[in-house]
Simulated scan of single mutants.
Amino acid sequence: MLPILTFTQLALTTFWAIVFVQSGLDKVLDRKGNLSWLKGHFKHSPLKGIVPLLLSVLTIVELTAGILCVIGITQIVISNDLTFAQYGIQLSTVALLMLFFGQRMSKDYEGAATIATYFAVALLSLYLIG
C-alpha cells in the first residue's frame, strides 16, 4: 500500500495527465471544429485576429503538460521522484491561466469561473507536489 501523500501526488498527477492529454488530443484531432467554435467565441474580442495562432500555442502547451504528467506518473511509481510531475503541473497551471485569460477576454464569465475551480485544484496540486 502506498503512503497517503504518495498516493495523493500520484492521483493529482494522473488527474492533470488526463485533463491535458485529452484536451490537447481533442484540439489536434478536431482542429477544424475547435477553430470554428473559437472564432465564434472570440469574434467580439481583441483576440479575434489571432485565434488560429492561440489555438496552436494552447495545443502545444496542453499536450506538453499532459506528457510531462504521464512521465511524472511513471517516475512516481518507479522511484518516487516528483520532478516531472512538478514540471507537468506547473505547465498545467500556465495552460489554465491561458484558458482563463481567453474566457475573460471573450467575456465568458461562467467559463472563467469553471477554469477558476480547476486553478484552485492546480494550486493545491503544486503545494502537495512541491
Rank of each mutant, 00 (worst) to 15 (best):
T64M: 04
T64P: 05
T64E: 01
A65M: 09
A65C: 11
A65H: 08
A65L: 11
G66R: 03
G66M: 06
G66F: 06
I67N: 00
I67E: 02
L68F: 15
L68T: 09
C69R: 01
C69I: 01
C69W: 02
C69K: 00
V70G: 06
V70A: 07
V70H: 03
I71N: 10
I71R: 10
I71M: 11
G72C: 06
G72I: 03
G72D: 02
G72M: 06
I73C: 15
I73Y: 10
I73D: 13
I73G: 05
I73N: 14
I73E: 12
T74R: 08
Q75W: 01
Q75F: 08
Q75M: 10
Q75C: 01
Q75T: 04
I76E: 06
I76Q: 06
I76F: 11
I76S: 08
I76A: 04
I76D: 02
V77R: 08
V77M: 14
V77H: 04
V77Y: 14
V77S: 03
V77D: 08
V77W: 12
V77Q: 10
I78D: 11
I78A: 04
S79Q: 13
S79I: 04
S79V: 10
S79R: 13
N80D: 13
N80S: 13
D81S: 15
D81P: 08
D81E: 13
L82S: 02
L82F: 00
T83C: 01
T83D: 01
F84I: 07
F84L: 10
F84K: 04
F84E: 04
F84A: 12
F84G: 02
F84T: 09
A85S: 15
A85G: 15
A85E: 07
Q86N: 14
Q86A: 11
Q86L: 15
Y87S: 09
Y87L: 04
Y87Q: 05
G88C: 05
I89F: 01
Q90R: 01
Q90D: 04
Q90I: 06
Q90W: 08
L91D: 05
L91V: 09
S92R: 07
S92E: 07
S92I: 05
S92G: 10
S92K: 03
S92P: 09
S92M: 07
T93C: 10
T93W: 11
V94M: 12
V94D: 11
V94S: 07
A95W: 13
A95I: 14
A95D: 15
A95S: 15
A95T: 15
